[in-house]
């Protein structure tokens, strides 16, 4: 109950703060829900770290309000999707306790790595609509930074390179070299199963194939359809950030999934997200 009161007071704070905003035109009435919404990923970072006031103004290092642990605990409670994601209450409380721990608090770092974006997109592939999942990372440069495509998952490529689990028929026999590999002629004549003649550890590089198909004009970008961020920055925790476009006060960029995970489990999670161990 006490917790709920805290969240309510924070929301009231957002509403009251709206009176202090500068005005820029003809205005509409109640915008309390818009104040409560976490409107940008940037705002998620600031609220997570308690680096902005209730009006959304940046609090800079040196101010007594900068990263205030008390405010952080309040902010963090409203940064979870409390309507659909059903995040375990114990996990949530454990996470908040750890990241606001007085001795060694954890703060999200935009340039700290260990987080990436999963961008669902729609492409036309040989005229047919297909989903491509792009994995994007923020890359630091000599000057500034930029988002780069780190990986891609494209279902048609998976099907194209699916190898038989127990292949006992399609192989190049161990004395092929004595005939100067003349039997290559046979394997390349059957295009559909050429992957069977590759090494056991062969994994097609989807990104290279993807770029090749784009350059050949076989793939045509249509639209972005969904966006998720995966955060691995906090010790022993993984969380997922998504945007919730709905009515009410629990909207915008919110934590949609939270998992306690050690480094080994994080590696497994990363592979799972990248479709490497599914």
């Amino acid at each position: 109950m006490k917790r709920l009161t805290g969240v309510f007071l924070l929301l009231i704070g957002f509403v009251i703060s709206s009176k202090g905003q500068q005005t820029i035109g003809t205005y509409l009435g109640d915008e309390s829900a818009l104040y409560a919404a976490t409107k940008q990923v940037n705002q998620f970072f600031r609220r997570f770290n308690s680096e902005e006031d209730l009006k959304g103004n940046r609090i800079y290092k040196g101010s007594k309000h900068f990263r205030n642990p008390k405010t952080r605990r309040k902010y963090l409670k409203v940064l979870f999707d409390n309507e659909t994601s059903q995040i375990n209450a114990d996990a949530k409380n454990g996470f908040i306790a750890q990241v606001t721990n007085g001795a060694s608090p954890f703060f999200l770092d935009f340039h700290g790595g260990e987080w990436f974006a999963e961008v669902r997109t729609k492409f036309l592939y040989h005229g047919k609509e297909e989903t491509a999942i792009l994995f994007m990372e923020l890359q630091e440069e000599k000057v500034g930074s930029k988002w780069v495509i780190k990986n891609v998952y494209f279902e048609p490529f998976v099907k194209l390179f699916e190898k038989e689990k127990e292949n006992k028929e399609k192989f190049l026999h161990p004395l092929s070299h004595e005939l100067a590999f003349m039997n290559l002629q046979r394997i390349f004549s059957d295009k559909s199963e050429v992957e069977e003649y590759t090494a056991n550890d062969f994994r097609p590089d989807h990104l290279s194939l993807f770029l090749f198909e784009i350059k050949r004009s076989s793939l045509e970008f249509k639209s972005v359809t969904d966006l998720t961020f995966h955060f691995f920055q906090a010790d022993n925790w993984y969380f997922e950030l998504k945007e919730f476009n709905r009515s009410g006060y629990n909207t915008g960029w919110l934590i949609a999934n939270l998992v306690k995970a050690n480094e080994q489990e994080k590696d497994l999670l990363r592979k799972y997200i990248y479709f490497e161990n599914r």
């Binding site: 709206s18 905003q21 005005t23 820029i24 035109g25 003809t26 205005y27 509409l28 915008e31 818009l34 104040y35 409107k39 940008q40 940037n42 705002q43 600031r46 959304g56 940046r58 935009f110 440069e141 000599k142 000057v143 500034g144 930074s145 930029k146």
Partner: peptide, 30 residues
């Protein structure tokens, strides 16, 4: 008629590789 909600959110400015800064302003309009 374009009406504004009395709210805008302005992100931090981040530097791009070409030296320019980039930011995002979020507004709501009816």
């Amino acid at each position: 008629t374009i009406q504004w909600f009395n709210i805008q959110y302005i992100s931090d400015l981040e530097r791009q590789p070409d030296g320019k800064y980039v930011g995002v302003i979020t507004i709501y309009q009816r």
